[in-house]
């Protein structure tokens, strides 16, 4: 039997493991890589984390509830392309504008969120109503979503979003662009929802034991469907931010982000068997990946090293998950 004090310490470390790893990694990089230890570099890491960080929120919620969403990357691209086509001024962009001009901000955001929510609702229909496997349903949406992006744009790109939107990518607060703050804010809001509201609590319970949740009178189907729609809308938000960042959209925008997001979610401590995970941890996972990527860039290593390392990290993360489980068993 471990003393309750020591046990509390060990539990705390296990619960926040990814943060300790992040601090360790940043320390090592700062000591060994010239020019790594700079405010500008750290601000850049946070900035890079914007899109994967946003996507990771929705994916985490669904994995915690015991489901899967592979469609997020294509949903993000689709939302970005729709925003690009409607509001960009050149390329395939139609360049719609409003008076006053700032109206484009809420309107484009609402459109991006709706596009995402619509794909999420379609996923929810197949998974919840038709009881199809979420892996397959969202894999299909991953494929047709990207296909739709290419079809809408004819393979071309949309460029030059209005300055009112670009503002969010250009203006900074504490050296970090506003859009990165939006991602952080979204993470905090959903972390609160997950930990402090009945909705979040029930999501965890559905991920742990859906039968028990159903028997307890929790509306499992409705909650699951809502979560799919939310994950879609959050991917729409990521697409909106990405369009603003790139000032438009290309047909292959964001390709590969699904796997980065996946890696970050697992590294961040979300268990693939459902029912376990916290969003701040996931955000730390995103920061960890971005830190490593930055280190690789600074050292002038070829970009494919990033992929090798990220692949290795996912394996390590799953291994850690298993180890944490056995340590906890011994504590109990």
């Amino acid at each position: 039997m471990v003393s309750s004090n020591r046990r509390a310490v060990i539990e705390f470390v296990l619960d926040h493991l990814v943060w300790f790893i992040l601090i360790a990694v940043l320390t090592v990089f700062s000591l060994t890589i010239p020019n790594y230890f700079q405010i500008g570099i750290f601000a850049n890491i946070v900035e890079q984390s914007t899109f994967v960080g946003t996507l990771a929120i929705g994916l985490s919620l669904l994995i915690i509830a015991g489901y899967m969403d592979l469609s997020i990357e294509s949903v993000m691209a689709l939302a970005a392309m729709v925003v690009g086509i409607l509001f960009a001024k050149s390329g395939v962009g139609l360049g719609f504008g409003f008076t006053p001009a700032w109206l484009v901000v809420p309107i484009s955001l609402a459109i991006a969120l709706s596009v995402g929510a619509a794909v999420g609702a379609s996923n929810a229909f197949f998974v919840v109503r038709l009881k199809m496997n979420s892996f397959i349903v969202t894999l299909a949406a991953y494929i047709w979503g990207r296909g739709l992006v290419v079809a809408l744009s004819g393979g071309r790109s949309a460029q030059e979003l209005p300055g009112e939107l670009r503002f969010l990518a250009v203006e900074r607060f504490l050296q970090i662009p506003l859009m990165a703050w939006i991602a952080i804010l979204a993470t905090l809001v959903f972390a609160f929802i997950l930990n402090r509201t009945p909705f979040g609590r029930h999501l965890l319970m559905i991920g742990g034991n859906p039968t028990a949740a159903y028997r307890a009178g929790i509306k499992v189907d409705r909650l699951t469907a809502t979560t799919f729609v939310l994950a879609g809308a959050i991917a729409g938000l990521a697409g909106w931010l990405l369009a603003i960042r790139t000032s438009g959209a290309t047909a292959n925008l964001g390709v590969g982000m699904l796997f980065q997001t996946f890696a970050a979610v697992v590294i961040g401590g979300v268990s693939l068997k459902g029912g376990v995970g916290s969003l701040p941890g996931v955000y730390a996972g995103v920061l960890l990946l971005a830190s490593i990527q930055t280190a690789i860039n600074l050292m002038g290593m070829p970009a494919h090293f990033t992929q090798l390392i990220q692949g290795g990290m996912v394996l390590v993360a799953v291994l850690l998950d298993t180890m944490k489980l056995s340590i906890r068993k011994r504590l109990a």
Binding site: R201, M205, G208, A212, A213, G275
Partner: peptide, 23 residues
């Protein structure tokens, strides 16, 4: 129920109030 209806991934308090939390 014969097969227990608890969510083992959350704590005792959460299970006790499952679906009827005090808010």
């Amino acid at each position: 129920y014969q097969d227990l209806s608890l969510c083992t991934n959350v704590d005792v308090v959460a299970n006790f109030f499952m679906g009827r939390e005090i808010v």
